[in-house]
């Protein structure tokens, strides 16, 4: 049995993982039916579905750890913006297909390294989720990586769009490595991975893909945006939640 301190830290940690995936999935689902080719409608929807499934597993585990009677859905539909802990990256607008791909790549490379460590977690549930998810993430990364190559090496326009996307989204990579006492407690207990261990590898991998995609390397040590882990979001966030939550909130007694 975990101490109360670990339990509380774990709830917080799981919510961060869950919120990242939930909001990224929600953003991706906006593209359903609007993709550049039918194959991408299928692929992006599939990725959205995987992320949603992962988020659900994390929310369910938070609900399990809670003393109150709460369900996974309560966490999704009845928290306000300032109580959502996702990184800013995942809530940003879809803009164009280049932004979608770069956003995914930034997330996928991180996720593959994270899950690569999390499969050694001492927490059996986390370990199991990581083992299941890493298979999905490999596919996601292959998808975003391949599109990086195509867009970067395709036409002048696609290369320019891709460059615009990476130049804008780069400042949102740093937050993925945010840690605080929640991480300290869980890393110490062997439950959560120490993300600082793979920060160099992360940026090296990203930069390698950028060069392969006929783009310039980017500097990891520039000013990075943050705030999501503390519930300080972009203006997009309130709109995402307004859409996502309106129905359960307008009829709080209803079952769906």
């Amino acid at each position: 049995m975990y101490t109360d301190e670990i339990k509380e830290a774990q709830k917080e940690y799981l919510l961060r993982l869950a919120d990242d995936r939930m909001i990224l999935s929600q953003r991706l689902s906006e593209l359903c039916g609007h993709g550049p080719i039918l194959e991408e409608d299928i692929a992006l929807t599939n990725i959205s579905l995987d992320l949603l499934g992962q988020a659900k597993l994390y929310y369910e585990k938070v609900a399990e750890l809670s003393d109150e009677e709460v369900t996974a859905d309560d966490w999704v539909f009845f928290r306000d913006e300032r109580e959502y802990w996702n990184v800013l990256l995942v809530e940003l607008d879809n803009e164009d297909f280049a932004h979608t791909i770069v956003k995914q790549l930034i997330f996928d490379v991180f996720e593959i390294l994270l899950y690569g460590e999390m499969i050694n977690s001492k927490d059996a549930d986390l370990k199991a989720i990581a083992e299941k998810s890493i298979k999905e993430t490999k596919y996601h990364l292959r998808h975003s990586h391949e599109w990086m190559l195509r867009l970067g090496g395709g036409t002048e326009e696609s290369n320019r769009r891709l460059r615009d996307a990476i130049e804008f989204l780069w400042q949102y990579t740093g937050e993925l490595f945010y840690t605080d006492e929640v991480d300290d407690i869980l890393v110490g207990a062997g439950i959560a991975p120490d993300v600082s261990k793979f920060r160099d590898e992360y940026y090296k991998t990203l930069n390698k893909i950028l060069v392969e995609s006929e783009l310039e390397e980017m500097d990891p040590n520039v000013w990075m945006q943050s705030g999501g882990r503390d519930g300080r979001h972009t203006e997009y966030m309130g709109h995402i939640l307004a859409t996502m939550q309106y129905l359960p909130r307008s009829m709080p007694d209803a079952q769906w």
Binding site: Q26, S29, E30, C32, G33, H34, L38, D41, I42, T45, N46, S48, L49, L52, G53, A55, K56, Y59, A72, D73, V76, F77, T243, M244, Y246, L247, P248, A254, W256
Partner: peptide, 29 residues
């Protein structure tokens, strides 16, 4: 896919959202 895609983002539970997303994906298939 369009009239149903119109509700994926507003599906009222995680379970319904999963089912709705998978359904629209089926239609694309």
């Amino acid at each position: 896919m369009l009239p149903e895609g119109n509700w994926i983002q507003r599906a009222p539970s995680l379970r319904r959202k999963l089912i709705a997303t998978a359904k629209v994906q089926d239609e694309a298939g």
